[in-house]
Simulated assay, not measured.
Amino acid sequence: MSPYVLTILLSSLGLGTTMTFASSHWLLAWMGLEINTLAIIPLMAQHHHPRSTEATTKYFLTQATAAAMILFASTTNAWTTGEWGIDSLSNPLATTMFTTALALKIGLAPMHFWMPEVMQGLDLTTGLILATWQKLAPMALVIQTAQTINPELLTVMGILSTLIGGWGGLNQTQLRKILAYSSIAHMGWMVIIIQYAQQLTLVALGMYIVMTSAAFLTFKTAMSTKTSTLATAWAKTPTLVSMTALVLLSLGGLPPLTGFMPKWLILQELTKQDMPLMATTMALAALISLYFYLRLCYVMTLTISPNTTISSTAWRTQTIQTSLPLALFITAALGLLPMTPTILTLLT
């Protein structure tokens, strides 16, 4: 892809997200989401391959459906209330439709079915953008309207997402599908607490973006898209593989790593809200997710290569990829735990 075209597309991605962040009018927020979607479509389809074309088509259809539902919900709300402001969402039908559309946008259960299939057809760089940057604008709208959305609906979606994200990733061997189910599970953690403590949602979203970026960039450096090829990574970059194992365990929420802190704070807040059963369900769902992260760690660090792998051994050539973003994200993913009180203080 031409550098000029790539610059325009990435600038449009930033413009769409910023427009949604800054908007207080439904049409402006909808326009930002549309610019965001239309900017990532060429990035997804740049590899002229049937899988990427299929993934792009699925993504476009689901996002177009979600955008139409948001536009219809905002029009319905304006029709009944006479207000176009985002904070004036009061019509029950419009609220439910809007929540469903945003769940479709971010891949929240039970509207999650497109996420693993789309992620599987993309390269790792575009998958990273889809799993991180594309979540920001819809999550901003969810946070702004969290107090008007039906709390039971948010709770059901949050629990379903954590359970489906855990169960769905158990039998996967494709790394992109595993990270897609990881995204679904983490979205459930963010959504279930959003009505009680929005700062915890922001903390969980920030930690998720840092850890997922580290995982995607590591797999890109190791040129791995399947769990079987991870077994050859130890012989090439042992230090990176050691750090990646800790990043994956942090994604699973294992103490004393960074990913444990948002989950612990969310469970603590749920307990304070007299929802111990909910907190127990979320903790058990996190244990299910932790299993497939442990399986990836086992394949990377405890499997002797290349005797037990069925894939061909990759050439041990020097990588030409930029390592600074990878180093920054891994450092942040492993060292942000002591900074959590400071982050919470800044957000409250």
Rank of each mutant, 00 (worst) to 15 (best):
L28V: 15
A29R: 06
E34P: 09
I35V: 15
A39D: 00
I40W: 01
I40N: 01
L43Y: 06
H49M: 04
P50V: 13
R51I: 01
R51T: 10
R51N: 14
S52C: 05
S52N: 04
A55E: 01
T57N: 04
T57R: 13
K58P: 02
Y59T: 07
L61D: 01
T62V: 15
A67I: 02
A68K: 05
A73Y: 07
S74R: 02
T75V: 09
T76S: 12
T80C: 00
T80K: 07
T81C: 06
G82H: 10
G82L: 10
W84I: 11
G85E: 04
I86S: 00
D87R: 12
D87Q: 15
N91C: 10
L93D: 03
A94L: 05
A94Y: 03
F98I: 09
A101V: 10
L102G: 04
L102D: 10
A103Y: 00
A103P: 05
L108M: 11
H112C: 06
F113S: 12
M115W: 12
E117Y: 08
Q120C: 03
G121K: 08
L122M: 10
D123K: 06
D123M: 07
L124W: 00
T126S: 11
T126W: 00
T126K: 01
G127P: 09
L128M: 13
A131S: 15
W133I: 09
Q134L: 14
K135D: 08
L136M: 10
P138G: 02
P138V: 02
M139F: 13
A140F: 12
I143D: 03
I143H: 02
Q144M: 11
T145H: 04
A146M: 06
Q147P: 01
T148E: 11
